[in-house]
Simulated assay, not measured.
Amino acid sequence: MTLNVFPPLDSNTQPTLPTDATAFYLNRKSQTLRSWASLENGPIRPIRINGRLAWPVREIKKVLGVEV
C-alpha cells in the first residue's frame, strides 16, 4: 500500500492544488471534492483547467482557518 505524502500546506508555493492533495489537507475523500465541484455546493469552488479540477490554495487555507 502506497501512502500519499504531501508537504505541509504552508510550504506550498503553487496557486492551486490537484484534487487528491486538496482532499488530504481537508481530510475528505477525493470523491467528496468531485461531488462539490459537480454540484457546486461545497465550501470551495475549483477552477477547471482543461477538464481537470484545480483547487485554490488560498481558499483551502480559509476553510482550514489558516488564512483569513
Rank of each mutant, 00 (worst) to 15 (best):
M1W: 07
L3D: 11
N4T: 14
N4P: 09
N4Q: 15
V5L: 15
V5G: 05
F6Q: 09
F6Y: 15
P7F: 08
P8A: 15
P8S: 13
P8K: 14
L9K: 10
L9H: 11
D10Q: 13
D10H: 12
N12R: 15
Q14A: 14
P15S: 11
T16L: 08
P18I: 04
T19H: 04
T19K: 01
T19I: 09
D20F: 13
A21N: 02
T22E: 00
L26Y: 03
N27H: 12
R28N: 07
K29A: 12
T32D: 11
T32A: 11
T32L: 04
L33G: 00
S35N: 12
S35C: 11
W36A: 00
W36D: 00
W36N: 01
A37K: 02
A37D: 02
S38C: 09
S38H: 12
S38P: 00
N41D: 10
G42F: 03
G42L: 02
I44Q: 06
I44M: 05
P46Y: 04
P46C: 13
P46I: 01
I47N: 12
I49S: 12
I49Q: 12
I49E: 12
G51N: 09
R52D: 07
L53K: 02
L53T: 00
A54Q: 09
A54K: 09
A54G: 07
V57Q: 00
V57I: 11
V57Y: 03
R58S: 13
R58P: 00
R58N: 07
E59A: 13
I60G: 01
I60A: 00
I60Q: 02
K61N: 05
K62N: 08
V63Y: 06
V63P: 01
V63T: 10
L64T: 07
V66C: 03
V68G: 12
V68T: 11
V68K: 13
